[in-house]
Design a protein around this nucleic acid. Structure first.
Lengths: 186, 186
DNA sequence: GTCTATAGCGAGATAGAC
DNA sequence: GTCTATCTCGCTATAGAC
């Protein structure tokens, strides 16, 4: 693999694990098996590398989600499939994690892909829920935007609870609790 | 206020804003208006100061939550009151934020108060939901542990979505969506 | 493209004076 | 209890050779 590509993937991984503040150029170089000069040849510095890595992660997250969203099945089925998809729960969300990083939120260039990814996710979930309403799966009074935000929040919050506990269980509970509510809503 | 107390409160604030990795002893001293020697006289170092600050924040979080939980009203009313309580949404959760910090999760001493706080919260919410079932507010098939995890997750995830958007709105949507589901569940 | 050398700075802690 | 001096280390970047 080319050096630039290795640098990007290493940055994605380290950003996921340790965030922006906790990730040093040196650590990226070590992980990517690239020299100092090599890194600064391909990228202007830590910020540009992070920008590239975050944008890449956002694109990958959308593609992965769309696999479940675009499939067959009712709205609840597709949402359940998305939530219960095989996930490395204890590693958390690559994008959501970055919202804890003040330096990411403070830099519009780094923040944009984070904001865009969640904006897309909520919109997409709202579409699916609106479909569910049209098919009579959900009652008329169910608000798609609200429910979409709730679904996205359970996912992100599930990661937080699981990481706090050091165990997948709270994540699975939170997801099951939401699915129960979606199935039982009148 | 005494120096030790100022140091603890400054650490609480900085941990909230910047996390463990992003918070330096020097920054704490500056914020607390305490000298280097003063800090190392009262605490053995960054880790012990952080431990004290995290434990304090956990205790405060419980007390604040219990204010809504112990009040009058139905289960849904008390949960709604808790979720919709006046919060500085864009600052996020002082405890939940720490789950993004690998150094906190790796150290059992720092991690314990984080794990304990969320364990308490989920237990407490499950009790309230179980009460709701006994009072006929919720159907028999509603699982208190699952639902409690969902409620806690919506809160934590709501913060993530709001911080990503730079706007309280997604948090409010997620909370409203959950309350709608709790009210509509049969 | 990749390397090594170097720089300026802050992190985190210790030592010993007052 | 608090102060200043000092230490070692790693961060982030630049310079210039190869």
């Amino acid at each position: 693999m080319e050096t630039a590509e290795r640098l990007i993937r290493s940055t994605q991984r380290l950003l996921w694990e340790r965030g922006y503040v906790g990730t040093s150029p040196k650590a990226i170089q070590r992980d990517a098996d690239a020299g100092q000069g090599s890194m600064y040849h391909h990228f202007s510095g830590k910020a540009e590398l992070a920008r590239t890595a975050i944008e890449r992660s956002g694109t990958e997250l959308r593609a992965a989600a769309e696999e479940q969203f675009a499939g067959p099945g009712t709205a609840t089925e597709r949402i359940t499939l998305y939530l219960a998809r095989d996930r490395d729960v204890l590693r958390g969300c690559r994008i959501g994690r970055l919202t804890a990083d003040p330096d990411v939120l403070a830099d519009p260039v780094l923040r944009a892909p984070v904001a865009d990814t969640f904006a897309w996710l909520r919109t997409r979930l709202a579409e699916i829920i609106a479909e569910g309403k049209r098919n009579g799966e959900y009652p008329d009074r169910l608000d798609p935007d609200r429910t979409a935000a709730t679904v996205a929040a359970v996912l992100q919050g599930g990661y937080v609870l699981a990481r706090a506990a050091g165990d997948d269980a709270p994540f699975e509970l939170a997801v099951q609790g939401l699915v129960d509510l979606l199935r039982g809503v009148t």
